[in-house]
Design a protein around this nucleic acid. Sequence first.
DNA 1: TTGTCCATTGGAAACGTTACCGAAATCGAT
DNA 2: ATCGATTTCGGTAACGTTTCCAATGGACAA
Lengths: 344, 344
Amino acid sequence: MFEPTIKDIAKICGVGVSTVSRAINNHPDINPETKEKIMNTIREYGYVPNDSARNLKRVDAKAIAVLVKGIANPFFTSMIKVIEQECKKKHYAMELSHIEADEDEVDVAQKVVKEKRLRGIIFLGGLFSHSEEKLKKLSVPFVFSTVGSIPENISKNIYSSISVDDRRESARMVDFLIRLGHTQIAILVAEATEESIGKLRLEGYCDALRAHGIEMNHRLICQTRNELSHFSMENGYLSTKKLLERGERFTALYAVSDALAIGALRALHDAGLRVPEDISLAGFDGIEMASYTVPSLTTMHQPVEEMAKDTTRLLFDIIAEKTKHQHITYEAELMIKESTAKRS
Amino acid sequence: MFEPTIKDIAKICGVGVSTVSRAINNHPDINPETKEKIMNTIREYGYVPNDSARNLKRVDAKAIAVLVKGIANPFFTSMIKVIEQECKKKHYAMELSHIEADEDEVDVAQKVVKEKRLRGIIFLGGLFSHSEEKLKKLSVPFVFSTVGSIPENISKNIYSSISVDDRRESARMVDFLIRLGHTQIAILVAEATEESIGKLRLEGYCDALRAHGIEMNHRLICQTRNELSHFSMENGYLSTKKLLERGERFTALYAVSDALAIGALRALHDAGLRVPEDISLAGFDGIEMASYTVPSLTTMHQPVEEMAKDTTRLLFDIIAEKTKHQHITYEAELMIKESTAKRS
DNA sequence: TTGTCCATTGGAAACGTTACCGAAATCGAT
DNA sequence: ATCGATTTCGGTAACGTTTCCAATGGACAA
């Protein structure tokens, strides 16, 4: 199979390679007729420019990377989909890469950036606890989207962040449960290490209890660690089962992610407990699935679409130096569904 | 920020670039000591080889593409995850790309292959109705995984395929429902155009009815088309609602994918119908979520893990010319759960 | 006519790597 | 000591593009 290169096209058209290049890249300094002729032969011979050669020559590739920690969470799947759409619009390539639980996200980022000459990075999920100097080594702009809190001692000028105020919104959810009359509220946190999202949401839980003068019962905090994926349905199922087997008493269960809540729902059902009659159940994230469970799930809905779009646009703007680093916080929406009820 | 190249490393070590290249690529013709020294400076200076330059020089990039049609289906998400793992093991890069509903998969494939110099392609989902000559233009090997049936007139020697026997397994599911005493079985098919998977599963449905001498009622075949994503929960929900509003009578509902079934479950619940007491519900795919619904979903479980692994390995083997094209069919497993019951 | 300017173009040097080819050095064996 | 074989290495030509820079030609003003 003959694969034409730019030289072949040039030869066929009887022009120089630079002219063909100009035609391909919409350069202004070219005669419309010549361009027309070149584009025709390109179509005819099915010529497609070699990406590697382009990226090699260009100072920077038209591409960004999305590094996800914990792809299992459907919330991220939604975000990625939107990010990809945005990238396509801007004719940017998107390099998607998972970060294993034991990998350091910044190390991975550094490697990817150098390998592929990317122009920017989006970190999705995971937590963050890196030194400023390490961050600075990342020679391209990056934005943290929906990651845990970032240590105060890192200058806000060297990175962007996008997320809801996890701690506050979490507190709102718990506050809602308390106002329904619940005082014994169990919480499902997959992992609450360091500055993870789970930790933030757990803190929100504590805030709300404290605000209402409810004494915290440590045995109602369920942190069963699942090595594989923190925010999985399976983890929610197993954790809840363990909680019930321990014989803890509670009238409401708050899972810090919808996936966990869905697993919890099943576990409660298996134990013969009715939701919401016996136990109220609440989640967090607002994934599509939450509307389809029976009973449907009360949850804190994060504006995924908006967040993903803003994440991408912000990164592009920073790359184009149209703006400096920003830190955007979104409002989550409390979606009251069937899984929660007044304490009977 | 200084970004060292292979030349810089060579200069620092006082060796030639080819020696550094040999060190990086584990070539045999190199003194272990030299290699050691080079690797140390590489680590010290944080050198990472430029991927574009590598791929440009190498005849073929160490990369394959995965082209998915209908990423919404969680079944594909699982497959992709496994495929990615397999690629990592073989040190292959994986280029993931969605195919929009209106795009031609082979055209996209052709473009991607040329652009990135890939060694192979995995087609995931979608349907297939292309001419043999067009397929032949694809200069790299490819395997169809879980796509609809492929026209008979295309030589089986130019492509590989991996899937369950959708028609047969679908018939098995319906047969199971019939044996439970159901005769009025509605079916939810998202799209049944051309040679799609939906069509195949619908044919299986017809086969089973015919085998049992049950007359088909066309009004029980629900093909509501959703422009966005065929196998979505929303589509299942809306279709079922429409079916109920039309006042059709049926005692069992068979959705050709679990996502559809989950939407259906919710719609049935909203209509005050109990599953399985009033209506038996069955799905297809065997996604994780099917185990967590209440009631849990009777479904045909496809061996995702195995299929994804085999898909990847098969492609690698074909690339390495260790084998010719193959066509593998898997057994699905009928998972009987709570959502189906004997007709009362 | 002559000179200037603009619009188009072609040539060639990079970009960073790998692969080939040949050279140097080391080593046994005769 | 000589010679071939083996190990280890360096130089250099690609890979396919983009981007400079210079060149060509025509149009236009002086």
